[in-house]
């Protein structure tokens, strides 16, 4: 969503970027600090809330047992939705922000479908699989929302526990197996190592900046959103914005994303591990 900004402000920002000085003092390759809260929605199977600058997003993960897709009987399913809460701004009331939410959900879903081990979500091949629903809520748009959603999604998935399932095979060949959900206080974690983070890189003038803020986004002729996995492996990429990107700039932007992505993943995983350790120490 575009912030209201004057041409004079845009010029100041663009000139600053050219000098390597952004309005919040960051350098072109600096990302904003990420502030995370885990398990904010106790009734969900996993959840996280993330603050990045003024951006504020929340992700809730709910899992349910479903019949698999006929075309993919040995795979679980993952779905992502993004809703812009009216709490963020009057411009999101009613159906405002709906299209934007749909676009972001599509990007997230594609990143997750290609990185989650959907085979591990099978309970009974051909009959019962887990469907993982990631529902995201944008509580404030301070720029870089898609990136923030991807980090919150990964964090929420990392703390998601799949309830234990007891499968009792039927007596005869024709009897349906019985499936019982166990007590979900001890569940199995999901494998999230390959889940990427989305790094947004904005082209402003002839330079590029990572993690654009709300005032920087309207100054960008184009923004590339790269899904970057561990080791800098590139997943999906999408472009937003009306301007074109010359090829050398494209490579520069890709490199910036591949530098930043793994760092974010490392720090995030470090934080998640420390939180988990603290939680089990408390429980002990």
């Amino acid at each position: 969503m575009q912030a209201d900004i004057s041409d004079a402000e845009k010029l100041y920002i663009a000139q600053g970027v050219a000098q390597g000085v952004r309005n919040d003092g960051r350098g072109c390759h600096d990302a904003r600090p990420l502030e995370l809260e885990l398990g904010v929605v106790a009734q969900a199977n996993g959840s996280a809330r993330l603050h990045v600058g003024a951006t504020d997003v929340m992700v809730g993960v709910k899992v349910s047992l479903v019949s698999p897709d006929a075309a993919e009987p040995a795979k679980g399913q993952v779905f992502a939705t993004v809703e812009c809460s009216s709490c963020a701004s009057p411009e999101f009331k009613g159906r405002g922000g709906e299209d934007w939410g749909i676009d972001m959900a599509a990007a997230l879903q594609s990143a997750l479908q290609s990185s989650l081990d959907l085979g591990s979500l099978v309970v009974l091949a051909g009959k019962t699989v887990w469907a993982v629903h990631l529902d995201c809520l944008v509580l404030n748009d301070g720029g870089g929302v898609l990136g923030a959603l991807s980090v919150a999604a990964r964090a929420a998935l990392a703390v998601t526990r799949l309830p234990k399932v007891e499968v009792t095979m039927g007596e005869g060949d024709d009897d349906e197996p019985e499936i019982e959900l166990g007590d979900d206080s001890e569940g199995t974690p999901m494998g999230v190592t390959r889940v990427p983070v989305i790094v947004s890189v904005a082209q402003i003038g002839s330079r590029c900046v990572v993690d654009p803020s709300a005032e920087e986004e309207p100054c960008a002729s184009a923004v590339l959103h790269f899904a970057v996995g561990p080791g800098g492996r590139l997943g999906a990429a999408t472009k937003t914005g009306a301007g074109g990107i010359p090829q050398p700039a494209l490579l520069e932007m890709l490199e910036a994303a591949q530098q930043l992505g793994p760092k974010v993943l490392r720090e995030l995983d470090g934080f998640l591990a420390a939180s988990a350790a603290a939680a089990s120490a408390r429980a002990a």
């Binding site: 995370l36 974010v264 995030l268």
Partner: peptide
Amino acid sequence: MSVTVRAYEH
């Protein structure tokens, strides 16, 4: 180019 991830405090 360091990255910071920390707990949020309201």
